[in-house]
Design a protein around this nucleic acid. Structure first.
Length: 773
DNA sequence: TTTTACTTCGTTTTT
DNA sequence: CGAAGTAAAA
């Protein structure tokens, strides 16, 4: 077993503890994947376990793929019979085989969050519940957490008796379930819930899988919810060879139902469990680990542990407070550019992490300005894009005609004159006859009040019927091409004045490529399989690590990843930790955010920079936030770049902005060292009014020095624009046009131009490079 | 039926 | 500030 020599003492113990329940508490960067992979190899080589009997579960496809690759390398013979899978795809595979035993059809479709929302809207309309009484999102969130806790409609109803709002949700839950059932569709939660249900109702099926999966490993165990816990418990119940790996300090998915108790109480649930702690970190420098340890030490509910490394202290942690979020983004982009120029790192070694996706835009703009290669992870998933969802909806309609959401989505896309009134009539008819929407369509002129729309319905039904017959022998990519050709989808896009038409067409091409490579990887894969796979793809899964691009993503998205150089942006109370946590009376809310900080800090291998801004626009309002409490929890001696003394944001002796109530509290606030840095108290930022800066003269328009940066001490004078409202200008891409409006943004002029060819565009003067004609 | 102009509303985090 | 939803016009 020469590969055991590469492991440290604790790692070895973990690998050698092959039988019975095992909890591996693996601190960040402690080589847990390594341990898991070696453990699998050891089970096979040493204990003679058949690869067939091993199951490894992860949360993301990316993690599964990485483990798969590493297992393949070390195991060799028979590696492909090991199941390495995410929770969700594991369940899909099981359900596709057996879901008919609990009354579903095996070609079920999977609804994503968007689809669920559509269903919920429909349900609320049918039940005459106004969205003001309860938002769809809130109802869905409540239902989702119920499912995470394995609470079915019946139990939910019992629990809600007497509480008006809960009773309301109970009714929605019931109808939502009915709608999904009718559509032969499962949502994400159902995949887990129904697998558990299947196992409980069909002991012989469970037994079958228990025999199959004699050795089970679960990664990121701290993120499991009750349903997932139960699933694992059932599977492992017979042989009890369950190895879970996790770090309670990295539990950051409470909002998704993750139950930190699963890992904290593992030894209670499995009394014979062995526990191994991995505390030696192979990723980061000691300074970074000290910072992470210091921050997380402020949490109460945790298993005590402390990361250490034999790497040196390394660089100090950099901290920088900028005046505005705009400057913060600028600073980060420029700092990366500088480091790359110096030859310290490549772009691909750098990541910028933030709390909310909303922060990505401003950072992206900075990267564009600097002309740096970057990739944003998260935000809109590829498969959530409109054009992709449209095409997929065609495939779903072909595959599973009772999927009402899919059919309704594409019945008038591209436009074929079937409007909402017609759709409503068909819907009513379907409800009355208790048939699916698509089946109702086939009734054509028998639908009351349908009029001459019947012909259009008939044409649509025929088109789908033809596609269905083609689906029998075509593979997915050919089918997509056929859909595009017969519907004229691409043509409509090309003719539309949609600015993103080109991108959309590119995306569709991308989808076709994915279908082709799916076929290569899964020659036996059906259309249902393809659609299921596609539904379970997360954004992080498609990140190309070999491309030399800096990554921009949320702190959540960064879990499990590492980068030589990490930036944490927006380290402000109110942003990170977020508002809702700051004002939550439950202290565990802040603890969850703190774990997120811990995750963020421990992503960095060599160099960590934390930044924040004094002023930031959120929802069109400027907020003044103090430095994040988490930054204050990092011992000062670990940091350099102490923030410069705060200057008030003033222009020509005049305040740029003030509180709406006219108080000068902000002055006091800003004059504290580090903008409130030393002060622990926090008050809810108040709305402030930015005075409108209206250009006094139009032509020629010469700006006054008014940008916050210019005002805050640097020497840059105001920018001059060579044109004004009404002038004719030329743009490199859009050609000639007339300036309609100019307004002053915090840092730049926003110019509205009516282009002769391209229509009206709004752009920033600095990078539009407009030329007066 | 479809396009447009206006109002409202909201932010964590995601498989 | 945007997106998304609603009301009115074409």
């Amino acid at each position: 077993m020469n590969y055991l020599n590469t492991l440290n003492k604790e790692q070895k113990v973990a690998v050698l503890s092959t039988d019975g329940p095992l909890l591996i508490l693996a601190g960040a960067g402690s080589g847990k994947t390594r341990v898991l992979v070696h453990r699998i190899a050891y089970l096979i080589d040493n204990n003679g376990v058949s690869p067939w009997n091993i199951l490894a579960i992860t949360f993301t496809n990316k993690a599964a793929e990485e483990m798969r690759n590493r297992v393949d390398k070390i195991v060799g013979q028979g590696a492909d019979s090991i199941w390495v899978s995410t929770f969700h795809s594991l369940c899909v595979r099981i359900l596709r085989r057996h879901i008919d035993m609990i009354g579903y059809d095996t070609n079920f479709t999977i609804y994503d969050t968007d689809d669920s929302k559509t269903v919920m809207k429909d349900v609320m309309k049918r039940l005459n519940i106004d969205s003001k009484m309860i938002r769809e999102k809130a109802a869905l969130a409540a239902i989702s957490s119920a499912k995470d806790e394995l609470i079915d409609v019946y139990e939910f109803k019992e629990n809600s008796a007497g509480d008006y709002r809960q009773e309301l949700i109970a009714r929605l839950y019931e109808e939502y379930e009915n709608a999904l059932r009718k559509a032969n569709a499962l949502d994400f939660d159902d995949l887990i819930v129904l697998t558990v249900k299947l196992f409980k109702e069909c002991p012989q099926v469970l037994d079958n899988y228990q025999e199959r999966f004699r050795y089970i490993m679960v990664d990121e165990y701290q993120d499991t919810n009750t349903a997932q816990f139960e699933l694992v418990r059932l599977l492992a119940d017979k042989y009890r060879n369950l190895c879970v790996v996790g770090d309670d300090d990295q539990s950051i998915y409470k909002f998704r139902g993750a139950n930190i108790g699963n890992i904290l109480d593992f030894e209670k649930n499995y009394e014979e469990a062995k526990v191994v702690r991995l505390e030696q970190n192979y990723r980061s420098t000691q300074n970074i680990l000290d910072a992470a340890n210091a921050v997380i030490a402020n949490n109460t509910e945790r298993k005590e542990k402390s990361l250490w490394t034999d790497k040196g202290a390394g660089n100090r942690i950099h901290f920088k407070q900028l005046d505005t979020a705009y400057e913060e983004a600028d600073y980060i982009a420029a700092d990366i550019a500088k480091a790359v120029k110096k030859g310290l790192v490549k772009y691909g070694d750098c990541a910028v992490l933030y709390r909310t996706n909303a922060q990505s835009r401003i950072l992206e703009e900075a990267f564009v300005r600097e002309g740096m290669p970057y990739n944003i992870v998260g935000g809109v998933n590829f498969y959530s894009r409109r054009e992709i969802k449209d095409v997929l909806a065609y495939l779903k309609t072909i595959d599973n005609g009772v999927d009402d959401v899919a059919v309704k989505r594409i019945i008038n896309v591209p436009k074929r004159g079937i409007g909402q009134t017609t759709v409503a009539k068909v819907s009513d008819f379907a409800a009355e006859q208790d048939i699916s929407f698509f089946e109702a369509l086939t009734y054509g002129k028998d639908i009351p009040g349908i009029g001459k729309a019947a012909l259009k319905l008939e044409a649509f039904v025929n088109m789908i019927a033809v596609m269905r017959s083609k689906a029998e022998f075509m593979d997915v990519s050919a089918l997509i091409k056929d859909v595009l050709a017969t519907t004229g989808y691409i043509d409509e896009l090309e003719e539309s004045d949609d600015d993103d038409a080109e991108d959309r067409i590119d995306n569709i091409d991308e989808l076709i490529s994915k279908a082709v490579s799916y076929k290569e990887d899964n020659p036996e894969g059906t259309l249902s399989d393809f659609l299921a796979e596609v539904a379970l793809v997360a954004d992080i899964d498609s990140v190309d690590e070999n491309a030399d691009m800096s990554l921009l993503m949320t702190l959540h998205g960064a879990k499990g990843l590492e980068f030589a150089r990490v930036y944490i942006a927006g380290a402000e109370d109110g942003v990170f930790p977020g508002m809702s946590a700051v004002f939550d009376e439950d202290p565990t809310a802040i603890e969850e955010e703190r774990r997120l900080a811990y995750v963020g800090i421990t992503r960095a291998k060599d160099d960590l920079t934390i930044t924040c801004a004094k002023a930031r626009m959120i929802r069109g309002e400027t907020q003044y936030n103090s430095v994040s409490r988490f930054v204050k929890e990092i011992p000062g001696e670990l940091m350099d770049d102490k923030p410069a003394p705060t200057r008030a944001l003033k222009i020509d002796g005049q305040e740029l902005s003030r509180y709406s109530d006219g108080s000068s509290e902000r002055d006091a606030f800003l004059s504290k060292p580090y903008g409130g840095y030393s002060d622990v108290t926090y008050s809810k930022p108040r709305a402030v009014v930015m005075p409108k800066v209206t250009p006094a003269a139009t032509k020629p328009y010469i700006a006054k020095s008014a940008s916050p940066r210019a005002a805050s001490g640097s020497a840059t004078a105001g920018t001059k624009l060579s044109y004004g409202v009404g002038d004719r200008v030329r743009h490199t891409k859009y050609g000639e046009g007339t300036v309609k409006d100019i307004s002053l943004e915090p840092r730049d002029y926003k110019v509205t131009v009516e282009f002769d060819g391209a229509g009206q565009k709004i752009m920033y003067a600095t990078f539009a490079k407009l030329e007066k004609i």
